[in-house]
Design a protein around this nucleic acid. Structure first.
Lengths: 124, 124
DNA sequence: ATAACGCATTAGTCTTGACTAACCGATATA
DNA sequence: TATATCGGTTAGTCAAGACTAATGCGTTAT
């Protein structure tokens, strides 16, 4: 089963929230992403059933190894593109919004090439 | 009505085909994008009904002013990103595929910033 | 003249991923 | 104790955008 763009996004959010506040429940994701409770509930059910997250009896969510791999990949891309766009003069909010879309669609090859370039050039 | 990503893609293809072979019918788009005939037929119906294209009695398609504006915007972005990715060392096919996705999702602001940078740096 | 082909369309289906309305169960509070 | 709130779930809906199967309809070839 190929992971979908929306699933990648949820996993990334779980990682971001857990770094920020230490624990993650569905309601935190609702507030973070501004999706409805049912939307998040159904997404968490799918992630759980496919082995990307664990949910304890009190509703606290943790990433599995498999989920963490994806979350970290997306988070790295997100940070890189946000910073890149801002350093090119884009407004922080727009940069974040664009990064949030771009991060999911680029091939590994293209991402690696961009990363290499901006690292070598010392752009960010 | 906000134009959708898929509509932008069809308009861009119409422009590319018309530059390449002078005339465009639905079947040319089928061959170009490798979608099914019904998918293209329905898409053309929507573009026609929303004033982005004209279709004559023999099925030949032309862009309206409104359609051309979008087609050219996407085509410019496509060319810029393809060339950029290739110049960073990405395989041409992958570069084209990634450009084809990125071109639709970036804000005007971010695209302008990228364009400015790569022009100033003489990258492509 | 009839069969075959090429192009377009119609009808109906599927998946992704969002939504609202309504409800459940636990905890907190008047 | 009755009720309100909070977090979560179930059921059902919607839109975008693809698909297949089948049909219509000129044109070409037998």
């Amino acid at each position: 089963m190929k992971i979908q763009e929306s699933a990648e996004n949820y996993l990334e959010s779980i990682l971001m929230i857990s770094e920020r506040k230490g624990e993650v429940r569905s309601i935190d994701i609702v507030n973070e992403l501004e999706f409805s409770k049912p939307s998040v509930s159904i997404a968490m059910k799918n992630l759980r059933e496919n082995g990307y997250i664990l949910v304890d009896k009190d509703g606290y969510i943790t990433l599995t190894e498999k989920g963490m791999v994806i979350a970290e990949k997306m988070y790295e891309r997100h940070k890189l593109f946000s910073r890149l766009f801002v350093s090119l003069g884009v407004d922080a909010k727009t940069a974040a919004k664009d990064a949030c879309r771009v991060e999911h669609i680029l091939s590994d090859e293209t991402f690696a090439a961009i990363k290499k370039y901006i690292t070598e050039q010392g752009i960010i």
